[in-house]
């Protein structure tokens, strides 16, 4: 889960806020990196094995809405079922639909350290920008 100029994420912070900026050469890659970023806020993603999956089928009004729905999906599986996502596998994707699965495993307190309790994904300063050679997304979480 290396962050490079082509694909990656970074964590953004200011008072009472935590968010991520993620990027990739395609919308799919930027969304995959955004999932990695969310999980990096919650735990150490390196320690999560992709041994189980949770199906994802989402439609939305626009790419930003889709991103919030996708991250909310990963967050739901964690809070309700203790499922930590290692990575997102995408089968099909457009700007308003996504089909794929979240690969990961159930929290094992002996191996996984929880960092922050993310309550929800917000629409605050939400952005999905296609810069031509790069797609960059930004999203903030309520903690």
């Amino acid at each position: 889960m290396e962050t490079t100029a082509e694909a990656g994420y970074r964590i953004l912070e200011h008072p009472a806020d935590i968010g991520i900026e993620a990027w990739g050469t395609t919308l799919s890659e930027a969304f995959r990196q955004a999932v990695n970023g969310l999980m990096a806020v919650i735990t150490d993603p390196e320690k999560v094995h992709p041994s189980e999956e949770r199906e994802v089928h989402l439609t939305a009004d626009d790419p930003g809405h889709l991103l919030v729905r996708l991250l909310s999906e990963a967050l739901f599986h964690f809070d309700a079922g203790k499922f930590l996502t290692s990575r997102l596998s995408i089968r099909e994707m457009s700007g308003t639909t996504i089909a794929g699965s979240l690969l990961g495993e159930i929290l094992d307190p002996s191996r996984h350290v929880l960092k922050l309790d993310v309550k929800a994904v917000t629409y605050h300063q939400l952005s999905v920008v296609d810069e031509g050679s790069m797609v960059r997304v930004r999203v903030f979480f309520d903690i």
Partner: peptide, 8 residues
């Protein structure tokens, strides 16, 4: 009211 980010 919070004055500093959690990170800071």
């Amino acid at each position: 009211g919070r004055a500093k980010s959690r990170h800071a």
